[in-house]
Each structure stands twice: as structure tokens, then as C-alpha cells.
Design a protein around this nucleic acid. Structure first.
Lengths: 140, 140
DNA sequence: TTGAATGCAAAAAATTTGCATATTG
DNA sequence: CAATATGCAAATTTTTTGCATTCAA
């Protein structure tokens, strides 16, 4: 992602190796809490990065629009590349699996909520909880 | 709610004034974080209740199915009476307003996710973020 | 050079847990 | 009476903040 530097500079921010590594770690993980991202960053072989820097890097990347997050469980936001935001997130409450489906499955919901209340729903930010096929079958 | 006692007993739990007050506070609030519930409980005139008891009471009431919660913002679950779970929660990220619409606006989403992945979505547990009409108009 | 970012350690929040005591059934 | 809940304080867990130092532009 060679234009990471440019995008950062466009906002008066700077390109640092920590930010590159955090972005890469999020990409590798697919989805991860700040804690998991921190772990993944340190696992890339480079020098360790303190949690505070990971939090700050995630904020910066989010402002840039390169990552986003959804609320997968009670106590932790789960970050993902912005590309993934083009999907609706599904979270299995049985096994913790996180999946995604194209946003258009929610088209009707979005338009009905708009008609009814004038509410502009941002579905990509939400996580829908439920049971995945496997857990559903194993819990009769 | 006279059968609160019965329902608790049916699970080997007990009816206490704290649990009654927490339930009442959730009802009064409509939606509230544990902290807000604790505050509302203490505001009912009775003796103050420590946060730990509020957390435990919310857990108990949730196990009973009398309250539920959704994830309204990053850092706090928002509890509500189970009755409210028959609605989809909408959260305005501009002003924090929390609204609700009947679950049927999500019927299509639920069935499409089921067809596609066999995923049983529990929409009532989710909060959909976005912008309410007012914030939408005031932020051109 | 100069402001932005980092690292570290300490401060804040938000929840949970241990345990003696009080209460319910 | 016996088991469950409470209250309180201490321990966790998660995230934020202050500040001296380092680094990118």
C-alpha cells in the first residue's frame, strides 16, 4: 500500500513503521480487537509495540478511512480493513465465528428505516449476532 | 410485575428488593448502561446500591429473559426491558439518540442470511448505527 | 528544525471477584 | 436452617493520558 504515506500526509499526519505494521496486522487478522492487533504486530518479528501506540495507530488509520470497526462482543471493538466494511458482519454467539455477507442483503432494511424515520443506517458498522449453521445444528 | 418472584424462584434464584429496583430502573430508563442503571436505581429514593450488585442483578434478570442488551456504543452495553427486544435498535452517532423500529423491517435480511449461510440472525440483539433525521439535516 | 509520534509509566474507566454478613424461602 | 445475595473493598481488564524523547518531513 504505497499511498499510505500520502494519505497520512494529506491530513498532516506522518508515516511511521508502527502504523504500517498495525495496518498490516489488521489485514492479516481480518478482524481483531486492539489487544489482538497488538499481539499480531509484535508477532511480525519486529520490535514490540506498546498497547498505547496500537490504540493511537488504529485511531489514525480509522480517521484515514483505512480501517473500521464493529462491535463483535460486549467488551471489545473489532477492527478490520475498510474493504471489509463493504460487508455486513455476522457474529456467532456459539463459537465466536465472524463472517460477512454483502451489504445488499440489508438494502430493504436500510430503505425501510429511511422511509419510516428518515434514519440513515450505516449497516457496515453493525454486527449481527446469532448462530452459525454449525452451532445451530449442534444445539438442537 | 407480580410474577418476578415466581420466575426467579423457578430458577432457584431469589426475589430481592435490589432486583426489583434494578428492573424498575431499566423500565424507567428505556435504555441504559450499567452505570446509568445504577444511578437510576439510587435515584428512586431507596438506599444506594453498589455497582457490583447492579451488574449481578442485570445478569440475573437477563438470564430470566426479562431484560436484554444491545451495544449502543464502543464501551457500554445498553440494557432494556425484554419487551423492547421486539424492536430493532437504531443509534444516532450524531446525537446519541436511540430509537427502535419493529423487527419486521429486517425480515428480508434475516431470511437472506439464513438462505446464504444458514446463519440464524438475532436482530434484536444488534444496534444499527447511523444518523437520525435531525442530525442528517443539520450536517449537510 | 519542528511538530508529530512513540514509549513508558501512571491514571482512568469499567467489570469482576472474594468473602464476611445479611436475607430469603 | 441452608443456600442465595448483598455490600464492600480489592483485583482485573481495557483504554487513555502526561511527558520526555525520538523521528519524519
Amino acid at each position: 500500500m504505497s499511498d499510505l504515506g500520502e494519505r497520512l500526509r494529506a491530513q498532516g499526519k506522518r508515516l511511521t513503521s508502527q502504523r504500517e505494521r498495525v495496518l498490516a496486522a489488521v489485514g492479516r487478522l481480518g478482524h481483531g480487537t486492539p489487544e489482538e492487533v497488538a499481539e499480531a504486530v509484535c508477532a511480525d518479528g519486529g520490535p514490540s509495540v506498546p498497547a498505547s501506540t496500537v490504540y493511537r495507530a488504529l485511531d489514525a488509520l480509522q480517521e484515514l478511512g483505512l480501517v473500521g470497526h464493529t462491535h463483535v462482543d460486549h467488551r471489545a471493538p473489532s477492527y478490520h480493513l475498510a474493504d471489509h466494511a463493504t460487508h455486513l458482519h455476522l457474529v456467532c454467539r456459539g463459537c465466536g465465528w465472524v463472517g460477512e455477507v454483502p451489504l445488499d442483503v440489508a438494502d430493504e432494511l436500510v430503505s425501510r428505516v429511511d422511509e419510516r424515520l428518515g434514519f440513515a443506517a450505516d449497516i457496515s458498522h453493525a454486527a449481527v449476532h446469532g448462530l452459525c449453521r454449525t452451532c445451530r445444528e449442534s444445539t438442537p
